[in-house]
Amino acid sequence: MTRSSEPTGHGTGSAAGTDSPGATNGTDGTDSISCEGVGVTLSGSSGALDVLGGVDISVARGEFVSILGTSGSGKTTLLRVLGGLLPATTGTVRCHGSVVTGPADGVVTVFQDYVHSLLPWRTVRRNVGLGIEAGCDRAERDERVDEALIMVGLRQRADEYPWRLSGGMQQRVQIARALATRPRVLLMDEPFGALDAMTKASLQDQLQQVQELTATTVVFVTHDVEEAVYLSDRVLVLDGSPAAIGLALDIPLERPRHQVTTKESADYLRLRHRVYEALGHDIGERARLGEHDHA
Protein backbone atom coordinates (compact mmCIF):
# COMPACT_ATOMS: atom_id res chain seq x y z
CA MET A 1 0.00 0.00 0.00
CA THR A 2 1.75 3.11 -1.12
CA ARG A 3 -1.13 5.35 -0.29
CA SER A 4 -0.77 4.71 3.44
CA SER A 5 -2.02 8.19 4.24
CA GLU A 6 -5.43 7.04 3.07
CA PRO A 7 -6.82 4.66 5.66
CA THR A 8 -8.69 1.88 3.96
CA GLY A 9 -9.70 0.13 7.12
CA HIS A 10 -7.70 -2.94 6.29
CA GLY A 11 -4.37 -1.99 7.76
CA THR A 12 -1.27 -2.14 5.65
CA GLY A 13 -0.96 -5.90 5.46
CA SER A 14 1.45 -6.89 2.76
CA ALA A 15 0.36 -10.47 2.41
CA ALA A 16 -1.52 -10.88 -0.80
CA GLY A 17 -5.07 -12.14 -0.67
CA THR A 18 -6.23 -11.18 2.78
CA ASP A 19 -9.89 -11.91 2.76
CA SER A 20 -11.82 -9.08 4.30
CA PRO A 21 -14.61 -10.27 6.56
CA GLY A 22 -17.22 -8.63 4.38
CA ALA A 23 -17.57 -6.03 1.74
CA THR A 24 -18.27 -3.43 4.35
CA ASN A 25 -15.36 -1.28 5.20
CA GLY A 26 -16.04 -0.43 8.80
CA THR A 27 -14.52 3.08 9.00
CA ASP A 28 -17.60 5.23 9.11
CA GLY A 29 -15.88 8.54 9.52
CA THR A 30 -13.93 8.23 6.29
CA ASP A 31 -16.54 6.58 4.11
CA SER A 32 -16.86 8.29 0.81
CA ILE A 33 -19.78 6.43 -0.68
CA SER A 34 -21.60 3.42 0.68
CA CYS A 35 -24.77 1.45 0.36
CA GLU A 36 -26.59 -0.84 2.69
CA GLY A 37 -29.02 -3.61 1.89
CA VAL A 38 -29.60 -2.30 -1.59
CA GLY A 39 -32.05 -4.27 -3.68
CA VAL A 40 -33.33 -3.30 -7.11
CA THR A 41 -36.33 -4.75 -8.89
CA LEU A 42 -36.78 -3.73 -12.49
CA SER A 43 -39.83 -4.41 -14.57
CA GLY A 44 -38.76 -6.05 -17.78
CA SER A 45 -40.79 -7.36 -20.68
CA SER A 46 -41.20 -10.70 -18.90
CA GLY A 47 -42.39 -9.31 -15.57
CA ALA A 48 -40.49 -8.01 -12.58
CA LEU A 49 -36.83 -8.91 -12.33
CA ASP A 50 -34.86 -8.83 -9.08
CA VAL A 51 -31.55 -7.55 -10.34
CA LEU A 52 -29.87 -6.76 -7.03
CA GLY A 53 -30.58 -7.97 -3.52
CA GLY A 54 -28.90 -7.04 -0.25
CA VAL A 55 -25.82 -5.32 -1.64
CA ASP A 56 -23.57 -3.76 1.01
CA ILE A 57 -20.64 -1.70 -0.12
CA SER A 58 -18.55 0.86 1.59
CA VAL A 59 -15.78 2.74 -0.13
CA ALA A 60 -13.21 4.76 1.77
CA ARG A 61 -11.93 8.15 0.69
CA GLY A 62 -9.32 7.88 -2.00
CA GLU A 63 -9.89 4.18 -2.42
CA PHE A 64 -10.05 2.52 -5.82
CA VAL A 65 -12.67 -0.21 -5.76
CA SER A 66 -13.61 -2.37 -8.70
CA ILE A 67 -16.94 -4.09 -9.07
CA LEU A 68 -16.53 -7.16 -11.16
CA GLY A 69 -19.21 -9.37 -12.64
CA THR A 70 -20.22 -11.17 -15.77
CA SER A 71 -22.27 -9.39 -18.36
CA GLY A 72 -25.86 -8.94 -17.19
CA SER A 73 -24.99 -9.49 -13.53
CA GLY A 74 -26.23 -6.04 -12.54
CA LYS A 75 -23.04 -3.97 -12.44
CA THR A 76 -24.47 -1.06 -14.37
CA THR A 77 -27.61 -1.15 -12.27
CA LEU A 78 -25.56 -1.00 -9.08
CA LEU A 79 -23.46 1.88 -10.34
CA ARG A 80 -26.55 3.80 -11.39
CA VAL A 81 -27.95 3.34 -7.91
CA LEU A 82 -24.71 4.62 -6.39
CA GLY A 83 -24.75 7.57 -8.77
CA GLY A 84 -28.32 8.48 -7.86
CA LEU A 85 -29.55 7.84 -11.41
CA LEU A 86 -31.76 4.97 -10.33
CA PRO A 87 -33.59 4.77 -7.01
CA ALA A 88 -32.97 1.59 -5.05
CA THR A 89 -36.08 -0.51 -4.43
CA THR A 90 -34.83 -1.34 -0.92
CA GLY A 91 -31.91 -0.13 1.15
CA THR A 92 -30.10 3.19 1.26
CA VAL A 93 -27.15 4.81 -0.43
CA ARG A 94 -25.05 7.32 1.46
CA CYS A 95 -22.51 9.71 0.13
CA HIS A 96 -20.32 11.59 2.55
CA GLY A 97 -22.83 10.90 5.26
CA SER A 98 -26.01 12.08 3.59
CA VAL A 99 -28.58 9.83 1.96
CA VAL A 100 -28.51 9.89 -1.84
CA THR A 101 -31.81 10.59 -3.59
CA GLY A 102 -30.50 11.91 -6.90
CA PRO A 103 -27.10 12.58 -8.43
CA ALA A 104 -25.06 13.93 -5.51
CA ASP A 105 -22.67 16.84 -5.50
CA GLY A 106 -19.13 15.78 -6.19
CA VAL A 107 -20.12 12.39 -7.57
CA VAL A 108 -19.70 12.01 -11.33
CA THR A 109 -20.52 8.99 -13.46
CA VAL A 110 -18.47 8.16 -16.54
CA PHE A 111 -20.51 6.10 -18.96
CA GLN A 112 -19.33 3.29 -21.14
CA ASP A 113 -20.86 4.59 -24.37
CA TYR A 114 -18.80 7.73 -24.78
CA VAL A 115 -20.32 8.30 -28.23
CA HIS A 116 -23.70 9.07 -26.73
CA SER A 117 -22.35 10.79 -23.65
CA LEU A 118 -20.55 13.66 -25.36
CA LEU A 119 -22.39 16.58 -26.90
CA PRO A 120 -21.52 16.26 -30.59
CA TRP A 121 -22.19 19.94 -31.29
CA ARG A 122 -19.64 21.15 -28.77
CA THR A 123 -15.90 21.10 -29.22
CA VAL A 124 -13.76 19.06 -26.83
CA ARG A 125 -13.06 22.15 -24.76
CA ARG A 126 -16.70 23.08 -24.41
CA ASN A 127 -17.65 19.50 -23.63
CA VAL A 128 -15.15 19.40 -20.82
CA GLY A 129 -16.43 22.73 -19.52
CA LEU A 130 -20.08 21.61 -19.48
CA GLY A 131 -20.23 20.77 -15.80
CA ILE A 132 -18.56 23.94 -14.50
CA GLU A 133 -20.19 26.63 -16.60
CA ALA A 134 -22.63 27.60 -13.88
CA GLY A 135 -20.31 27.78 -10.91
CA CYS A 136 -17.13 29.32 -12.29
CA ASP A 137 -16.16 32.54 -14.02
CA ARG A 138 -14.57 32.31 -17.44
CA ALA A 139 -10.96 32.48 -16.39
CA GLU A 140 -11.29 29.82 -13.75
CA ARG A 141 -13.29 27.62 -16.07
CA ASP A 142 -10.64 27.84 -18.78
CA GLU A 143 -7.97 27.03 -16.28
CA ARG A 144 -9.77 23.98 -14.93
CA VAL A 145 -10.63 22.74 -18.41
CA ASP A 146 -6.99 23.06 -19.46
CA GLU A 147 -5.88 21.27 -16.33
CA ALA A 148 -8.28 18.39 -16.98
CA LEU A 149 -7.28 18.19 -20.63
CA ILE A 150 -3.62 18.05 -19.71
CA MET A 151 -4.31 15.27 -17.24
CA VAL A 152 -5.81 13.11 -19.97
CA GLY A 153 -3.32 14.26 -22.58
CA LEU A 154 -5.76 16.00 -24.89
CA ARG A 155 -4.62 19.61 -24.60
CA GLN A 156 -3.66 19.61 -28.31
CA ARG A 157 -7.10 18.49 -29.50
CA ALA A 158 -9.16 20.94 -27.46
CA ASP A 159 -10.79 22.64 -30.43
CA GLU A 160 -11.77 19.51 -32.33
CA TYR A 161 -15.26 18.11 -32.31
CA PRO A 162 -15.36 14.86 -30.35
CA TRP A 163 -16.69 12.80 -33.24
CA ARG A 164 -13.48 13.53 -35.10
CA LEU A 165 -11.48 11.75 -32.40
CA SER A 166 -10.75 8.07 -31.90
CA GLY A 167 -12.73 6.06 -29.39
CA GLY A 168 -9.99 6.20 -26.78
CA MET A 169 -9.72 9.97 -27.10
CA GLN A 170 -13.46 10.38 -26.81
CA GLN A 171 -13.47 8.40 -23.62
CA ARG A 172 -10.64 10.61 -22.33
CA VAL A 173 -12.79 13.64 -23.11
CA GLN A 174 -15.54 12.17 -20.98
CA ILE A 175 -13.09 11.50 -18.16
CA ALA A 176 -11.71 15.03 -18.46
CA ARG A 177 -15.22 16.41 -18.26
CA ALA A 178 -15.71 14.54 -15.02
CA LEU A 179 -12.31 15.64 -13.67
CA ALA A 180 -12.98 19.29 -14.47
CA THR A 181 -15.73 19.29 -11.88
CA ARG A 182 -13.09 18.20 -9.32
CA PRO A 183 -15.19 15.25 -8.19
CA ARG A 184 -14.71 13.54 -4.88
CA VAL A 185 -16.08 10.30 -6.24
CA LEU A 186 -15.74 9.02 -9.76
CA LEU A 187 -18.11 6.24 -10.79
CA MET A 188 -16.96 4.53 -13.95
CA ASP A 189 -19.05 2.01 -15.87
CA GLU A 190 -16.80 -0.20 -17.98
CA PRO A 191 -15.11 2.94 -19.28
CA PHE A 192 -12.55 1.03 -21.34
CA GLY A 193 -14.83 -1.84 -22.32
CA ALA A 194 -15.23 -0.80 -25.94
CA LEU A 195 -11.55 -0.05 -26.57
CA ASP A 196 -8.78 -2.15 -28.06
CA ALA A 197 -6.19 -3.75 -25.77
CA MET A 198 -3.38 -1.22 -26.36
CA THR A 199 -5.57 1.83 -25.86
CA LYS A 200 -7.08 0.18 -22.83
CA ALA A 201 -3.70 -0.39 -21.22
CA SER A 202 -2.56 3.16 -21.76
CA LEU A 203 -5.81 4.59 -20.42
CA GLN A 204 -5.55 2.33 -17.36
CA ASP A 205 -2.17 3.81 -16.58
CA GLN A 206 -3.40 7.32 -17.21
CA LEU A 207 -6.28 6.72 -14.83
CA GLN A 208 -3.85 5.41 -12.24
CA GLN A 209 -1.76 8.57 -12.47
CA VAL A 210 -4.76 10.84 -12.34
CA GLN A 211 -6.05 9.10 -9.27
CA GLU A 212 -2.67 9.31 -7.61
CA LEU A 213 -2.60 13.01 -8.37
CA THR A 214 -6.10 13.90 -7.28
CA ALA A 215 -6.79 11.26 -4.62
CA THR A 216 -10.27 10.85 -6.04
CA THR A 217 -12.35 7.95 -4.79
CA VAL A 218 -13.06 5.62 -7.72
CA VAL A 219 -15.71 2.96 -8.10
CA PHE A 220 -14.81 1.12 -11.25
CA VAL A 221 -17.17 -1.35 -12.92
CA THR A 222 -15.66 -3.89 -15.25
CA HIS A 223 -16.04 -7.44 -16.50
CA ASP A 224 -12.30 -7.71 -17.08
CA VAL A 225 -10.58 -9.56 -14.22
CA GLU A 226 -7.07 -8.43 -15.14
CA GLU A 227 -8.15 -4.82 -15.30
CA ALA A 228 -9.88 -5.03 -11.93
CA VAL A 229 -6.92 -6.61 -10.16
CA TYR A 230 -4.41 -4.33 -11.85
CA LEU A 231 -6.13 -1.08 -10.97
CA SER A 232 -7.81 -1.64 -7.63
CA ASP A 233 -7.20 -1.43 -3.93
CA ARG A 234 -10.11 -3.80 -3.54
CA VAL A 235 -12.14 -5.99 -5.87
CA LEU A 236 -15.78 -6.82 -5.23
CA VAL A 237 -17.32 -9.63 -7.22
CA LEU A 238 -21.01 -9.31 -7.97
CA ASP A 239 -22.87 -12.56 -8.53
CA GLY A 240 -25.99 -14.52 -7.80
CA SER A 241 -29.54 -13.79 -8.75
CA PRO A 242 -30.53 -11.34 -7.40
CA ALA A 243 -26.92 -10.29 -7.36
CA ALA A 244 -24.97 -9.46 -4.22
CA ILE A 245 -21.29 -9.08 -3.33
CA GLY A 246 -19.89 -12.61 -3.47
CA LEU A 247 -16.21 -12.00 -2.89
CA ALA A 248 -14.37 -9.00 -1.52
CA LEU A 249 -10.66 -9.12 -2.01
CA ASP A 250 -7.98 -6.65 -0.98
CA ILE A 251 -5.33 -6.04 -3.61
CA PRO A 252 -2.28 -4.94 -1.67
CA LEU A 253 -0.01 -4.72 -4.72
CA GLU A 254 2.59 -2.00 -4.76
CA ARG A 255 1.93 1.27 -6.46
CA PRO A 256 2.66 2.63 -8.94
CA ARG A 257 1.81 -0.49 -10.84
CA HIS A 258 3.28 -1.42 -14.13
CA GLN A 259 1.62 -3.22 -17.02
CA VAL A 260 4.45 -5.74 -17.40
CA THR A 261 6.15 -6.15 -14.04
CA THR A 262 3.05 -5.98 -11.88
CA LYS A 263 1.23 -8.43 -14.08
CA GLU A 264 4.14 -10.85 -13.88
CA SER A 265 4.43 -10.76 -10.11
CA ALA A 266 3.39 -13.83 -8.16
CA ASP A 267 1.08 -11.78 -5.92
CA TYR A 268 -0.79 -10.46 -8.91
CA LEU A 269 -1.20 -13.91 -10.40
CA ARG A 270 -2.40 -15.37 -7.13
CA LEU A 271 -4.97 -12.61 -6.69
CA ARG A 272 -6.12 -12.99 -10.23
CA HIS A 273 -6.51 -16.71 -9.68
CA ARG A 274 -8.72 -16.12 -6.65
CA VAL A 275 -10.94 -13.77 -8.56
CA TYR A 276 -11.30 -16.14 -11.48
CA GLU A 277 -12.16 -18.88 -9.04
CA ALA A 278 -14.86 -16.75 -7.49
CA LEU A 279 -16.29 -16.21 -10.96
CA GLY A 280 -16.34 -19.97 -11.59
CA HIS A 281 -13.47 -20.12 -14.08
CA ASP A 282 -11.19 -22.30 -11.92
CA ILE A 283 -10.27 -25.13 -14.28
CA GLY A 284 -9.08 -23.20 -17.26
CA GLU A 285 -7.35 -20.75 -15.04
CA ARG A 286 -5.45 -23.44 -13.15
CA ALA A 287 -4.07 -24.75 -16.39
CA ARG A 288 -2.78 -21.34 -17.38
CA LEU A 289 -1.28 -20.76 -13.97
CA GLY A 290 0.55 -24.08 -14.27
CA GLU A 291 2.16 -22.86 -17.44
CA HIS A 292 3.40 -19.80 -15.67
CA ASP A 293 4.83 -21.90 -12.86
CA HIS A 294 6.86 -23.98 -15.29
CA ALA A 295 8.21 -20.96 -17.06
Binding site: G83, G102, V107, F111, G131, E133, A134
Partner: peptide, 19 residues
Amino acid sequence: RLIEVGAVLRLSRPAVLWK
Protein backbone atom coordinates in the same frame (compact mmCIF):
# COMPACT_ATOMS: atom_id res chain seq x y z
CA ARG B 1 -27.95 9.24 -21.91
CA LEU B 2 -27.49 12.97 -22.58
CA ILE B 3 -30.14 13.82 -20.01
CA GLU B 4 -28.27 11.65 -17.53
CA VAL B 5 -25.07 13.49 -18.37
CA GLY B 6 -26.85 16.70 -17.42
CA ALA B 7 -28.01 15.15 -14.15
CA VAL B 8 -24.60 13.75 -13.31
CA LEU B 9 -22.95 17.13 -13.90
CA ARG B 10 -25.63 18.73 -11.71
CA LEU B 11 -26.96 21.08 -14.39
CA SER B 12 -30.08 23.01 -13.48
CA ARG B 13 -33.32 22.34 -15.37
CA PRO B 14 -33.03 25.47 -17.52
CA ALA B 15 -29.41 24.58 -18.24
CA VAL B 16 -30.40 21.07 -19.37
CA LEU B 17 -33.01 22.59 -21.66
CA TRP B 18 -30.73 25.27 -23.03
CA LYS B 19 -27.44 23.39 -23.22
